[in-house]
């Protein structure tokens, strides 16, 4: 074991891991973090805590992560390189680790243009791959970016993201290979709706033997409505929602659409469980956390293993 991370232990046990996420509130409302985490606490192995997601200011991911940690749960500290330079990131990693957070997720982050601070300067002192390298260097070599030794280095289990659907498709596996080479221990993917394409991607991943070098958690998002499906298809960059999924959502009444969305999510998990290289699921129920337990149970992923 590289770390004390519960996620690492679950993955090492060979069980399919389950993670989900909590978006911190836009205000000093610690109760909100607890409330959201409580909804999913028994059904996941670890909880991603997003970092100023969609480039909007929120409670910092490490602070919200500490609140979750204090509930006896396992937060995954998300960190985007958009908002901090390498000094700030390394100090936050040490700080988070000192508060008991041992798993993190390295991202570049949405461009500031999409948030409510489009006038802010995006930092991007490092990119996501360089952040993975930096965290690994802290853990495995006990060194800061500047080369100095760290007294009692933070031991983080390192995650990175992959979008199997963004263009150009031929680069996607190479990019994953780069993240693994940089030091990613696990990967959480973008929401998967186009299962055929994802399976093709996973074949390519396995052909290169990457499935043996990294734990890949497939991203699952239940859709609340046909409108949401259309929005994700048309407006969210790098999202691939096939027409038959939209048709299926449109094929039922508005009242039944949420239930249909959950059904699709569960069927997706059932199908992806059989795909070689998929070691778990990352369920992103956007502002719909209360549905996560139902999905996990119906997909046969409950109870969660004790490690």
């Amino acid at each position: 074991m590289k770390t004390q991370s519960r996620l690492e232990k679950v993955l090492a046990s060979g069980a399919l891991a389950v993670t989900s996420e909590v978006g911190p509130p836009r205000g000093a409302i610690p109760e909100k973090v607890k409330e959201k985490a409580s909804l999913i606490k028994d059904h996941v192995d670890a909880i991603n805590v997003t970092d100023n997601q969609t480039a909007m200011v929120r409670m910092s991911s490490w602070a919200a992560g500490v609140i979750i940690k204090q509930m006896g749960l396992d937060p995954i500290l998300q960190m985007v390189t958009r908002d901090r330079n390498r000094l700030a990131m390394q100090s936050d990693i040490i700080g988070a680790y000192s508060m008991g957070i041992n798993t993190m997720m390295c991202l570049s982050g949405d461009h500031v243009k999409f948030g409510d601070h489009p006038m802010a300067n995006g930092v991007f002192d490092l990119d996501s791959i360089q952040l993975v390298q930096a965290v690994r260097k802290m853990r495995d070599e006990g060194k800061f970016q500047g080369g100095a030794d760290i007294k009692s280095p933070p031991k983080m289990f390192i995650g990175a993201a992959a979008n199997p659907f963004a263009d150009p498709f031929e680069l996607r596996v190479m990019r994953l290979a780069k993240k693994i080479k940089a030091g990613a221990d696990f990967i959480q993917t973008q929401c998967i709706f186009n299962l055929d394409k994802f399976e093709k991607y996973m074949e390519m991943v396995c052909d290169r033997g990457l499935d043996e070098q990294v734990h890949l958690l497939a991203g699952i998002t239940p859709m609340k409505s046909a409108g949401m499906a259309r929005y994700m298809k048309n407006k969210v960059p790098g999202m691939d929602v096939p027409d038959d999924v939209i048709k299926r959502m449109e094929g039922v009444s508005k009242e039944e659409q949420p239930e249909e969305g959950i059904k699709i999510a569960i069927e997706s998990i059932e199908r992806l469980k059989k795909v070689k290289g998929v070691h778990g699921f990352h369920i992103m129920a956007i502002e719909w956390e209360e549905k996560v337990p139902q999905i996990v149970e119906k997909a046969g992923l409950f109870p969660r293993p004790v490690v």
Binding site: R82, F124, Q130, A166, P237
Partner: peptide, 17 residues
């Protein structure tokens, strides 16, 4: 994003998000 190891996940049809 001045990424030295790109592209990020936001690219579509060769265009930036």
């Amino acid at each position: 994003k001045h990424l030295l190891n790109g592209p990020c996940g936001g690219t579509s049809d060769g265009k930036c998000e």
